[in-house]
Amino acid sequence: MKSKKILIIDDDPIIFKTLGDFLSEEGFQVISAIDGLSGLEKAQKEKPDLIVLDIILPRKNGYEVLEEIKKEESLKKTPVILLTNLGSLNDVEKAVKLGAVTYLVKSDYSLKEVAAKIKEALN
């Protein structure tokens, strides 16, 4: 069975390395980008099955990236999980309004739980 392709867009190298390595070990094909603009370009080029997106990012923030993904015909059905450390009601409401499937606060979840949420969103 072909492994699912996950794009992680996060500017924190420790976060995308640990999450990326963990997901690889769980059988996913992982690609990553360290800013919003290159993340969007990679999404357009690689057509991932799911995108894990941070909010505070250089060159284009997570909300802007999410907005553009949802506008693009070839990407708009790709589930996007927002994985951030902003956890206010406003942030969550904004993310849901823009079309994110789940909103996760990094420090509240273990790698295992994030992987479970990704599998859930892919099904």
Binding site: I15, F22, T84, N85, S107, K112
Partner: peptide, 17 residues
């Protein structure tokens, strides 16, 4: 929230991995 939680999440995930 962002500044304090980011390094803590990195630490937690590295250890878990």
């Amino acid at each position: 929230s962002h500044q304090l939680k980011t390094p803590l999440a990195g630490l937690k995930w590295s250890l878990e991995f």
